[in-house]
Design a protein around this nucleic acid. Structure first.
Lengths: 335, 335
DNA sequence: AACGTTTGCGGGAACGTTTCCAAAATCTGC
DNA sequence: GCAGATTTTGGAAACGTTCCCGCAAACGTT
């Protein structure tokens, strides 16, 4: 597999490499005839520029990396769609790396992006602090980084998020106004900062209506459907009188809802269910899931724009954006 | 953002670049003391090797690219998990590109992979022939490529698939044996070869039991949930007497199932539903969806292994693997 | 003590580009 | 035709590595 290089072209045309390069890069300091000859020869020989060499020279790659914590949910796919819609038009390519909720893999992926000399990174974190050191190092070394959704704390980088606290508050409130008194919360793992915020929103909404929140009503859970199902088992054991479940994520809410039904509880009559950060998943389950729906495509576009700002002007102040998210009540919670 | 290079280390230690390089690459022709000194200095200065330069030198990148047609479904995520489990252990990194069911974007992504000098490509195609020319060019230029699931036709590359025809046949047969007579098939778009195979399996199973397949019973559909829902609308109009639906994909089957229920048909009593290429999605819907479940993780691992074979021995014959897939009957079709 | 071997290191080319600078070729106007 | 301006070209360095080659010093052998 001999690759055709600029030198080969130079040789066959008895020209210098510099001339060939000029022809190919569209430099104007060249006779049109020679340029045409070069281009023709390049085509004839099947020349394809070696971008690694170009990157080495240029020090960048016209590519940005998107690091996502998981891909089981279409969440990332939607956001990436938004990112691409902004970046493709500018000739910037988008690279994806999935960390599968594993901080170590995330760290590797971060390194990978640096290796490829991406011009910037868009990231949604597995853990809100585990890789902060690495991200800080990168950012300080001049790598533009913006985060979305699952943000970092104590890191001075642009972020695009929704107001987890407020949305969780209002969603809980809606459940309460739907005449639910014992709303169980499936709280996410500590390593996800959003779960802390969403819990606060839940807690304060309950407090506002003077509804007690006993320890059995807050269940620690993971991130998967199975985690949600397990949580449902615990609910049946420890808090069988509950009449609503608010999952910190659609995924766990769905897992819990399905298991509750299997265990004989009717949804929504017996138990109302709601989730957070809705994707299409919330509409394919039965009954459809009430959730907080962030504008994912817009989130991606915004992240891309913030990143471009940083790329074009590295010393620009870090702008963060809080997007509005719709609270959508569906069959899973209509009493 | 001044990057520390090997030269900087050489300068501060009054050594030559070659010595520094040797120390860093673990060459044995070096005194242990100097090596330690170099390593210490590297650490102190915060040296990070520039992999682009390495790639340029080495002509490869220790990275393989995975091109997926979509990420709305966790299908790709699972397969990628398998790929990573094989490749990570060998120090090979995995890059993902999502084409969003768009052949043009897929073509761009193919080019992107070439640009990054990936050592190989694992691909599931948007369209079974649209980019064959590009893939052929790459393969002939010596790029190892293997495809999985959505394979190409008439392209001599290793593939890992399941037997779409047989599995569709047996699944249809199970529906029939469950006492369904009018099985409607949601046929996928022509550009996906699997849909052709699955249709054949359906048709032949129906024929085996001498069940008529009228034109209204085969509905052309797309790839999304919404496409499935639309198909359900058509079924209600054109073939309301049907008692089963076999969707060429879980996605369309789910879309159709949910819409059928909305329109008042009971599942599975009134209409049984089954899909194909199951992911977790088929277990979160209600009732749970009968489907053909390929071993996705294994599929990824196998693809990775076939790719490694090709990478290590480019002239090896192209081995293809057909994996077994389980046919799993669930609530959506139990009469 | 003289010789070959090994060990440790530096010089420099190479990977495929781009780009600066200077040299050569061509063009201007007289 | 000729000086000067301008266009077109070639040479060479550079991006950050690796690696081959050769040289010197240290070592081992008789």
């Amino acid at each position: 597999m001999k690759r055709i290089t600029i030198k080969d072209i130079a040789r066959t045309l008895s020209l210098s490499v510099s001339t060939v390069s000029r022809a190919l890069t569209g430099d104007k300091n060249i006779r049109t005839e020679t340029r045409d000859a070069v281009i023709a020869a390049a085509k004839r020989l099947g020349y394809r520029p070696n971008p690694v060499a170009k990157n080495l020279k240029a020090g960048h790659s016209n590519t940005v990396g998107v690091l996502v914590p998981e891909m089981v949910t279409p969440y990332a796919a939607k956001v990436i769609g938004g990112v691409q819609s902004v970046l493709y038009g500018r000739g910037i390519k988008v690279l994806i790396a999935d960390s599968g909720e594993d901080s170590d893999k995330e760290r590797d992926n971060l390194a990978l992006m640096e290796q490829f000399m991406v011009d910037g990174i868009i990231i949604s974190l597995c853990d809100y602090k585990r890789n902060n050191d690495e991200i800080r190092r990168l950012a300080e070394a001049g790598m533009p980084i913006v985060s979305y959704d699952r943000m970092a704390r104590g890191l001075d980088i642009p972020q695009v998020t929704v107001d987890d606290y407020m949305k969780a508050f209002f969603l809980t409130e809606k459940l309460i106004l739907g005449d639910r008194k014992t709303v169980v919360h499936l709280q996410g793992p500590d390593c996800v900062y959003n779960s802390i915020e969403r819990f606060r929103g839940y807690r304060d909404a309950m407090a506002k209506y003077r509804l007690p929140v006993t320890p059995e009503m807050v269940i620690r859970t993971g991130l998967s459907f199975a985690d949600g199902a397990e949580a449902a088992d615990r609910i049946m054991r420890e808090c069988p009188s509950c009449d609503a479940i608010f999952g910190f994520t659609d995924t766990v809410a769905i897992g819990a809802m399905n298991r509750m039904r299997e265990l004989g509880r009717s949804i929504p009559e017996g138990v109302a269910v709601a989730g957070f950060s809705g994707t299409e998943l919330s509409t394919i389950v039965y009954p459809q899931l009430s959730t907080v729906e962030p504008p994912l495509e817009l989130m991606g576009r915004t992240a891309a724009e913030l990143l471009l700002e940083k790329i074009n002007n590295p010393s620009a102040p870090n702008r963060s954006v809080v997007l509005n998210a719709d609270i959508i009540m569906r069959g899973s919670s209509q009493a």
